[in-house]
Design a protein around this nucleic acid. Sequence first.
DNA 1: CGACACATGTAACACGTTACATGATTTG
DNA 2: CAAATCATGTAACGTGTTACATGTGTCG
Lengths: 196, 196
Amino acid sequence: MSIKHGLLALLRTEPKYGYQLRGEFEAATNSTWPLNIGQVYTTLTRLERDGLVQASQAGKDDDGRSLYEITEAGRTELAKWFETPVTRESRPRDELAIKLALALAVPGIDVSAVLQRQRASTMESMQELTRLKRIGRDGEISWLLVLESMIFSAEAEIRWLDHCEAMLSRHRRSAKTSTASKDQHQPEDHKAGANQ
Amino acid sequence: MSIKHGLLALLRTEPKYGYQLRGEFEAATNSTWPLNIGQVYTTLTRLERDGLVQASQAGKDDDGRSLYEITEAGRTELAKWFETPVTRESRPRDELAIKLALALAVPGIDVSAVLQRQRASTMESMQELTRLKRIGRDGEISWLLVLESMIFSAEAEIRWLDHCEAMLSRHRRSAKTSTASKDQHQPEDHKAGANQ
DNA sequence: CGACACATGTAACACGTTACATGATTTG
DNA sequence: CAAATCATGTAACGTGTTACATGTGTCG
C-alpha cells in the first residue's frame, strides 16, 4: 500500500500528472525503490476507482498532460495513513527470517553456509550504502534519511546474523553431547570466523 | 515468495498434507506471520501448476489426507532459494521509510507527530517482544531466532527514528534562518540556497 | 444433538509488476 | 531522418489474502 498512499501524499498540495508523480516519488525516496511508470497509471486508475483521486476539474495541463487531483475521501485516507503507525502485523513477511527458520527446522540444510552467504551479501550492501552516504550531495533531507534507514537496518541484520552464527555453534555443541551421531545427516561443515 | 519456498522446504524430507504444512510452518516461525489454511492450498495448487510439487505417488494418508510431495524441479528451486541471499532489491518497499520520506517531501505534514507516534508504537512492540523472549521456553531454536530477528529490527528502527528526530530538529533550526514565517500552500519547494 | 476442530478445496479480489501499444516532442 | 524521451494508457500475470462451501470426526 506504499505506492497508493505515496501518490496520495504527493497530490496533497496540487493536481499532478503521471510522470511528475513518478519523478517526485523517486526524488523523495532517493530512487531506492524504483517506480515503474506503468505502475503509476495502474495505481492512479485504482485510486480513481476507489474515489480517492479524480481527473482534475481544471482539465489538462497547458501542455495537454492529464492532471489528477486528490478527493476529500483521499485526504481522509491520507491523514489516516500518517496517523497510523506501521506495526509488525502490517509488515510483509520477513523472507530472511523465514528462510533461516526453515533452514533450521528442516533437517539436512547447511545453515552455516546460508548464514555466511547472507552475511557477505549484506556486508556488500552496507559498503555500497555507506559509499553512497559519503558521496551524498546534500539538499533534500529525505534523501539522506531513506539511505540511513537502510544502513540502520543492514547493521541490525549483520548483528543478527552474527548472533545466529553464535547460537548455532552453541546449539551444535550441545546437540553433539546428547545425540551421539544419531540419525539424520547434519552436514558438519562449520567454518566460522573468517570473513573479509 | 516466502510461503512458496517455505512449503517447498517443509516438503524436502517427506510428503505432507495441508494442515501439517501450516502447523510446521507456524511452529518454525513461532506463529509470527500466521498462515491462513486456505493459503496453503492455493499455494500448493500453484506449486503443482508450476511443477514444483505433485500429489504424492503413494496416494493418500492412512486417514485419507492428501499428501503432496516435492518434485525434482522443486528441489532445484529450493536449493536456489537457500543459495541466493536476500538482497535489498528483492525486498518489498519499506513502508515506514516511504512514509517518512514523503512526510518530509510534501509540505504541511507534521513530521514530528508521525515520528513520535511511530516511536511509541515500536517501543510497545519491543516490550512485547522482550516479554515473549523472557517467558520463552526453549526447545526449538528457530523459535528464538525469529523472535530475535524482530527485536534486532525493532531496535534499529528506534535508533533510526531518534536519528530522524535529531536531524529534523537541526533541519528546522537551519531552515528558520532562511525562511521567515511562511508555510501552508506553496508550489515552490526546491530552494537551492538553504544549505543542507 | 450441537459445537468445534480437522481437512480440502474454490472463488474472488487487491496489489505489485511487467510488457506492450500508441502518440507527441525533442535532439543528434 | 532516426533515436530517445516524454506521456498516457491497457492487458496480463503472479502472489497474498480472505470468504465461503463441504464434509468428517470428536466431545460434552
